[in-house]
């Protein structure tokens, strides 16, 4: 349950309606750099820095199904505001969370970055991208892939995530082990 207002509904990417917004080149570059930094923070297990990418009312959301437009009142794989993200971080780092003691790591690659909308006045952006993530845990590798949509708000010190929607192509499959960190 969120302690912030639920984000406005957001549909999964629709390739047929894909149009790149008109925006200055540096906006495209800044957004790409932001997404690369996000991937680096996740792979580097810099959990607090990752959480700090989110606006105070920002939400990380991984729907259970691509047709969902909200996690409010519907089951999701993740649906977390900064408070729940902080609880998750503390759990991962807790010395007695034995399952997380096993050495594990990930590698994200983010690409196909398209600006869907750009508001010249506020600087806010909606962008979509694709990711591949390989996780190695104990003696097994797992591969997750899918799309991100980010609603980014522009502040004095750069972008902050208002909503990150993560649609994994294998999100509806069986999980050999559960997901413990954000994808």
């Amino acid at each position: 349950m969120l302690t912030v207002p639920a984000p406005a509904p957001l549909a999964a990417p629709n390739p047929a309606s894909l149009r790149a917004a008109t925006a200055p080149l540096e906006v495209q570059r800044d957004v790409e750099q932001f997404l690369y930094r996000q991937a680096e923070l996740l792979d580097g297990k810099a959990w607090q820095d990752y959480i700090d990418l989110f606006a105070p009312e920002g939400v990380y959301w991984m729907p259970a199904h691509p047709h969902q437009t909200t996690g409010d009142g519907e089951p999701s794989i993740f649906f977390e505001d900064r408070n729940l993200m902080t609880i998750r971080m503390k759990r991962i780092l807790h010395p007695r969370a034995w399952s997380q003691k096993t050495q594990w790591g990930t590698s994200h690659v983010v690409g196909n970055v398209v600006l869907e909308s750009f508001d010249a006045r506020s600087g806010s952006v909606v962008c979509r991208s694709r990711f591949h993530m390989l996780e190695f845990r104990r003696d097994q590798s797992r591969h997750f892939a899918g799309s991100y949509i980010h609603r980014l708000a522009k502040g004095a010190d750069g972008y902050r995530i208002a909503l990150q929607r993560v649609d994994m192509v294998n999100g509806e499959g069986l999980y050999e082990y559960v997901l413990q960190a954000w994808v």
Binding site: A64, P75, S76, I77, A97, S99, Q100, Y177, L179
Partner: peptide, 24 residues
């Protein structure tokens, strides 16, 4: 909503609760 909140945190594939149990 109560059942859903419990499901999201305890029984979803990102569970913070069953993770240790499943590992065991």
């Amino acid at each position: 909503r109560r059942a859903l909140g419990y499901f999201n945190l305890v029984n979803s594939p990102s569970t913070m609760v069953n993770a240790d149990d499943l590992w065991n």
